[in-house]
């Protein structure tokens, strides 16, 4: 705990020094809420040194707050207007007067029943009832996904790969365009061959599989580069909050 406090004070000292260096640019925030935000930001950042009480506090707070956040969002935006107001409109007169006069739609008893069944998961005696609701969710997801994935991610991608490998632009051969299209066609084929494990990767099949590996390596390299970019952006965002909104150091 003592070490944690030292770390906290070091952090405060660091930002204090930064503030002094830029004295007079703008005033530090006097908004208590901004200070709470800054404290929580620093509490999470303190994990970089080591796990500590401030981090654990912030982490646990996050879990509680986010669970309640999603519950409230779902309740007011979907449950009230799309279920309660459908089953018994007058009940929402005090909160959604605009739709309180609509006629009831009793079909909505089905999702209400399934939803309550879902909550039975918490019951110590009959958690198996929740399987009915779960089965409905799984059935809907699979039914929706099957056709859509078939259309867009399977047939759609094959269609997009059937492209000319000799590209002619303004009446003459485009070397760059042709090369790119060849890489796309060969890359997709070889990538798929690499994922095909029912045949031993030998001979021509093995060569194609090797090419597939290199294409996938470039793909992963590109993804890595973009992931770094994403994470740095988030850090810049937090620093702009600390240095700007909280300390008032940014113009």
């Amino acid at each position: 705990m003592r070490k944690d406090l030292v770390w906290l004070f070091a952090g405060i000292l660091f930002f204090g020094l930064l503030y002094l260096l830029n004295w007079g640019v703008k005033a530090i925030s006097t908004d208590l809420l901004v200070w709470i935000g800054a404290f929580l930001t620093l509490a999470i950042l303190s994990f970089l040194y080591q796990d500590n009480a401030f981090y654990k506090f912030a982490e646990h707070l996050f879990v509680g707050v986010s669970a309640a956040y999603w519950m409230c969002m779902g309740f007011w935006n979907t449950l009230v207007p799309n279920l309660i107001a459908k089953l018994h409109p007058p009940i929402v007169k005090g909160v959604l007067p605009a739709i309180a006069e609509k006629p009831p739609e009793y079909w909505y008893i089905i999702p209400a029943a399934l939803g309550i069944m879902f909550l039975m998961r918490l019951s110590p005696k009959a958690p198996w009832i929740s399987r009915w609701a779960l089965a409905f969710i799984v059935g809907t997801t699979t039914g929706l996904n099957l056709v859509r994935y078939l259309r867009s991610d399977f047939l759609g991608q094959i269609k997009s790969t059937l492209i000319p490998v000799i590209v002619v632009e303004n009446g003459s051969l485009s070397v760059g365009g042709s090369f790119s299209n060849i890489v796309i066609v060969v890359g997709v084929l070889c990538g798929l061959i690499y994922f095909f494990f029912s045949k031993e990767h030998k001979g021509l099949f093995g060569v194609a599989s090797r090419v597939g590996i290199y294409i996938l390596m470039i793909t992963f390299g590109a993804s890595f580069g973009y992931t770094v970019m994403a994470r740095i952006s988030l850090l810049v965002g937090r620093m702009r909050f600390l240095l700007g909104d909280w300390m008032g150091l940014l113009q």
Partner: peptide, 29 residues
């Protein structure tokens, strides 16, 4: 790199995943 080899690699992965999703959906249904 992004619009050619990365796209080819991602497409190969996407087709593979699509086949997996379709097969799994059928098994579940």
């Amino acid at each position: 790199i992004m619009s050619v080899p990365n796209m080819a690699g991602q497409r190969a992965i996407m087709v593979g995943i699509a086949l997996g999703v379709i097969a799994m959906a059928l098994r579940v249904i």
